[in-house]
Amino acid sequence: MKWEAIAGGLGFAVVGVAHAFGLFVAPSEAAMGETGRMLYLHVPTAWAGMGSFLVAFVGAIGVLWTGGKRWDALVESAVEVGIVMSVLLTVQGSLWARPTWGTWWTWDPRLTTTAVMVVAFAGVLVLRHLVHRPERRAMASAVATIASFADVPVVYLSVKWWRSLHQPISNAGTVDTLMLVPFLVACFGMLFVCAALIGSRWRLAMSRLEREDRASDLPDRPVPLSLEGRP
């Protein structure tokens, strides 16, 4: 059995247990009431998204350092998983914002910078599809990933820098233990799920890059058959 399957299964189980505690055991949030339970899913998804982009950033540095295919595959897989997680994060945020803020979307700094971050990393995937030479594609997407990563700390600190509707960064000391424990367990489980997704996507990316390598030995166009000079 591959490690991704074990990590993914374990991650889903841990997230499930944490959510069961979050939904049925933990007290409801003082200000938000029952809608506050969305945070057991929302914040771990945010961590997973940011973590994936951090992995992509590390992969991009690896590409610049070594130029290796393994790092390039890591960039591709982590960016893709990061985008999926961030889109899920935005959808969860909208579902939570509707009953809490009375709107699906608002031009809040945290929401806006998150949307910008997703678009920036989506640009990296578009770039990968438009550059065909493998070495150049690896280098170009590594550069674009490093540049796009500049937005990640901006997203994290946006609630500190600007007046925001979004909740500021919480202090664990002010949170009830019955809420904190399932929350941290859910975050831990989600990181496992995320690692499993990146791992399996990395395997796919590697097999595609290796296939591409083998194919590059072939001529661009099929050599026309010539029967002239044959007996």
Partner: peptide, 13 residues
């Protein structure tokens, strides 16, 4: 097409 897609999000801050 690609230049604004990559550049605009980067220069938002």
């Amino acid at each position: 097409l690609l230049l604004p897609v990559l550049l605009f999000p980067l220069v938002v801050p």
